[in-house]
Amino acid sequence: MICCKECIELLHDYLDGELNPEIEASLEEHFADCPPCIAFVNTYKSTTRLCKDTLKSNDIPDAVKSRLKEFVDKNKNT
């Protein structure tokens, strides 16, 4: 049977659906019997989502936005 170490090494490709069906089936067989790996997969997925949600919202502050606009206007007229 495939071990936790191998499962975790293959996790990226597993979540992207890029494993061949045979290997994917052995991973799922392992997961069915291994609560720590299930917890690992869930928290691995959450990590990506949480970081994305936190870091994606870097809106440009209004003050910076207007300075950039001035900058663009100045350059397009030169």
Binding site: C3, K5, A39, F40, N42, T43
Partner: peptide, 21 residues
């Protein structure tokens, strides 16, 4: 990075906190 025993099984206690975030 995760640590494993000689047989390749996870050594740490893994908590599932994915639902509480």
């Amino acid at each position: 990075l995760p640590s494993f025993n000689k047989a390749g099984f996870q050594q740490e206690k893994i908590q599932d906190w994915s639902e509480s975030t």
